[in-house]
Design a protein around this nucleic acid. Structure first.
Lengths: 221, 221
DNA sequence: CGGGCCCATATTGACTCCAAAATTGGTACC
DNA sequence: GGTACCAATTTTGGAGTCAATATGGGCCCG
């Protein structure tokens, strides 16, 4: 493999907060995760600790803690005494994660249908409609937030908080190195439609239908 | 909650390696994990960094890295500016992990049956028989190793390495604060029998039977 | 002219030290 | 006698510093 020069990221992360010592206990991990997921750091690129330190205005300790977290999530790879770099896209691994997500999210369906109250359904429908609206005219960041909210609300309903958290983590991991369908308007609309269809399946108590929708939703990414 | 005094662990971890700088990159995390899982550190106890530093003969950095890893695995809880302590047993959480494991391990069954060659079955049978032998007269450590080997070999067969790794991690997490059935001879024998039954189900290509055995195996813990 | 070896350089990773925060024990007061 | 307050101690969390290691270029040799 040809070692790539250690250039700056494609577009310098704009979140260049001045050296303000805020509650950055895991804030850096979140920011770094977002920046990696949205390809602000080029895949395969070396993430030099000093560079991160300067870009995010934090100390070395924070950088290393965040890098360890990214390593855990599989967003970066580590080579001893060489450093960390952004994990290159791996279609095979992503397929494995999708398959695993299908198993987990399908397992959550029964719990969701068992616990969902009319209020829950109404709330989910509201989130799905907000996403649909944002899909027409909304910022990328807002789409991401609404999407996360919808899925978090959905899987929280399953009654198994561990399962819900694990699904959330895998949803993040599976995105590594792919922007999904969100780069095209038709893809966005399809996503929004699927969300709404899921809500209706829940309202109808249709377990098998919901499972199929979820499976398709995962497969489409 | 009444704060417990910070006493020494019930039995001081015997792995008091002298300050030899070996490849302890993640060695401490492994040792610490074992010691927590086997209750060498009392649940709820504060794990003082200086104490760990002295006990394991490593530097502060290693200790903190290992603690972060334990935190990720849910084996310790962290309070800001207070420290880390061994996660108290939480039956509810363990039940959630068991339910999640059932979904994941059941999902692996189809892959296992699809990929298992006669050689694989023979190897699994060998591991299961070694475990059964060790269940009669073997050290606890050997049982742990053989059990891990058996399950690792089993789930590696599913053809989805991500799924296999995730199952392995959840198996570890689910053990937090419980020694399972391995404290009694009948429990050990039952475990060994179930392993052998699983192998036979694979040899017979009995998907539904294998799923049931796995489910029972998880539920029994 | 091509290949291999060696050294300067840059980067990581770990040790050590120090300030900030919380606990704990003691004391004075009600 | 109980309670609230205060100061000393302990412990964490972070930052700075320094040795170990891999790299890349330059030089020498075949």
């Amino acid at each position: 493999m040809r070692p790539q020069p250690a250039i700056s990221p494609a577009s310098p992360p704009p979140s260049a907060t001045p050296p303000s010592r805020r509650a950055a206990s895991d804030g850096l991990a979140t920011r770094l995760r977002q920046d990696i997921l949205y390809c602000r750091w080029v895949a395969g690129q070396w993430l030099k600790q000093a560079e991160l330190e300067a870009h995010y205005g934090v100390g070395r300790s924070e950088v290393r803690k965040a890098l360890a977290e990214m390593l855990r999530l599989g967003l970066v790879v580590h080579e001893l005494n060489r450093g960390y770099r952004v994990t290159p896209p791996d279609p095979g691994r992503r397929a494995e994660i999708r398959a695993t997500r299908m198993a987990l999210e399908a397992a959550a369906v029964d719990g969701i249908l068992a616990h969902a109250t009319p209020d829950d359904v109404a709330r989910l429908r509201g989130l799905a409609e907000q996403f649909a609206a944002a899909a027409e005219e909304g910022s990328f960041a807002r789409l991401v937030t609404l999407n996360q909210d919808f899925h978090a609300a959905l899987y929280t309903l399953c009654g198994n908080s561990f399962l819900a958290e694990l699904i959330g983590e895998l949803r993040t991991r599976g995105l590594a190195g792919s922007t999904g369908r969100w780069t095209t308007a038709p893809g966005l609309r399809a996503t929004a439609r699927e969300h709404l269809a899921m809500v209706e399946a829940i309202a109808a108590g249709d377990a098998e239908g919901l499972r199929g929708l979820i499976r398709a939703h995962i497969a489409a990414f």
